[in-house]
Write a protein that binds this DNA or RNA. Sequence first.
DNA 1: TCATGATATAAGTATATGCTTATATATACA
DNA 2: TGTATATATAAGCATATACTTATATCATGA
Lengths: 115, 115
Amino acid sequence: MEKTIIELEQAAQTLKLLGDKTRLTILGLVKDSECCVCEFVEVLQMSQPSISQHLRKLRDAGLVKEQRRGQWIFYSLNREHATYPIIQQVLEQIPDQKEKLKALEEAGLRIQCDS
Amino acid sequence: MEKTIIELEQAAQTLKLLGDKTRLTILGLVKDSECCVCEFVEVLQMSQPSISQHLRKLRDAGLVKEQRRGQWIFYSLNREHATYPIIQQVLEQIPDQKEKLKALEEAGLRIQCDS
DNA sequence: TCATGATATAAGTATATGCTTATATATACA
DNA sequence: TGTATATATAAGCATATACTTATATCATGA
């Protein structure tokens, strides 16, 4: 893998966004698969506006991408972002969030969408 | 290298501290060698109290260690910290701060202390 | 066209953050 | 003992942050 050097200022901006439990969990979730807002609300047990505001910060910074499918808006990790290598490394060193999505699925709360 | 999983909450706390240009630079500097406060002040061109306050945050979190030698207090990276793997990875992906120390040295502003 | 569900946005608020200036503390050295 | 240097701490202040509640937007389906 080629080593890319990320500008300090840009790295700091991304790290600031990662430096919040809620956003770090959100990124841990979208690392494994796309998620929609109501799933974050369910997993994180937080209000919908609060989640939306965190997502907006992540999206404004370009760390996540959004895609509407019907009534849902799905968020995914933007692996093209300049600071993605940092995010990737960080996510590798924290507990996997996959089980939380699995628990959602088992509770029948996972959103599946073909459109 | 063994892979250690860092608790999400603790990771977020460290990332928050890294998410500031000044502190990220400070950590980049102590990655290479011990530095004292006046060196940070010189390199970063910021007020001494401001630097001291950033150092206090880093020290309170345990990310750096301090050691007094005579009239100077030297700061160094605490490589035993639980979140050190994250810090290490991040520092590997941003520009090296070594030249800044070298410039200090050439300007005769580097503090050398044997005590 | 209307009601519902998913999401975004706005406004308000309490707290956190990062600087400033002023001052205290601690060491060195004459 | 007195002065200079290095550093820490305190207090004040402007701005940022992360919620809350209320409301707007947009797609779906009857």
